[in-house]
Simulated assay, not measured.
Amino acid sequence: MLVRAIHEAALAELVDVGLGQLGMEGIARRASTAKTVLYRRWASTHELVLDALAQAHPVEVPTPAANDLRADLVAALVLLTDWMRTPAAAAVSAILAERERHPGLVEALYRRVFDPRGATFTTTVLRHYADNGRVDARRLTPITTQIGEALVFKLAIDLGRTPNAEEVAAIVDEALLPALGI
């Protein structure tokens, strides 16, 4: 599918050349299509990249019965560690590194990609369990909803790799569940 090839090309081009050098010509060349094809759908490289990131961003899906919070939180953080090894994650890093030069793009990244999906990889799970009376909704603060994701990123920085399954389970067992009073 052409749109998917264009999305992949946009993310790869962003990672390879950076935000400052990103252009429709490079994306078109990488996607083996004409630049005019891109402009018919996207007004700018930023619009194209945001669209590509929205399509590439995974969403955690908690168990419908809300009967295994630990497993759902572990699964959400594994989804994050898997995503961290994708071109989409590298593209997000490239955008965030340009926060001062492109604050509007960073704001749009959060508004159009992250916020509609719950803002963090565990938020959808936590809200699902709160809605089902399994977690005290008052415990879902801006801090507790970010603990799991923050620790995954911290370990990735410290270790130079994404956390493994054992480390993800420890984040859930030793930090996230206790912060929720569980």
Rank of each mutant, 00 (worst) to 15 (best):
A156K: 06
E174R: 12
A91C: 08
H46V: 12
L38D: 05
A108D: 13
A56E: 10
F153G: 06
A56T: 15
A150M: 07
G160S: 15
G20L: 07
E166D: 13
G20A: 15
T120C: 10
A34P: 00
T162C: 11
V59C: 09
N132C: 10
P62C: 11
E25T: 08
A5S: 11
A90M: 10
R99F: 05
R85Y: 05
L2W: 04
R70S: 01
T63A: 11
A108Y: 15
A52I: 01
A137C: 07
V17M: 08
T120V: 10
V168Q: 05
L80Q: 15
T145K: 10
L77N: 00
G104S: 13
R30Q: 04
T162D: 15
A75W: 01
A54C: 12
I27V: 05
A5W: 10
A108I: 08
E8G: 13
P142N: 06
E166W: 04
A130F: 01
H128C: 05
P87N: 13
E167Y: 10
V152E: 08
L109A: 07
G18F: 03
Y129N: 03
A90V: 12
H128T: 04
L19T: 06
Q146R: 15
L48E: 09
L140C: 06
E167P: 06
R99Q: 15
N67H: 01
R127G: 01
L79A: 11
P58K: 09
D16M: 08
L22W: 00
L105S: 12
E47S: 14
A76S: 14
I157M: 11
P58W: 05
G148N: 02
A108T: 13
V135S: 02
V106D: 11
V37E: 03
E166M: 14
K35S: 09
M24H: 09
D72V: 01
G104T: 10
V61W: 04
K35Y: 08
H46I: 07
R117Y: 01
T120I: 04
I182Y: 12
A91I: 06
L159W: 03
R161G: 06
H46W: 11
A165N: 13
L105P: 00
D68E: 03
V168E: 05
L38M: 09
L2R: 03
L126G: 11
G181N: 02
I182L: 12
L53V: 14
L177R: 11
A52F: 02
P58V: 03
Q21V: 01
N67P: 00
R127M: 05
I157H: 13
A71D: 09
I171K: 09
G104V: 13
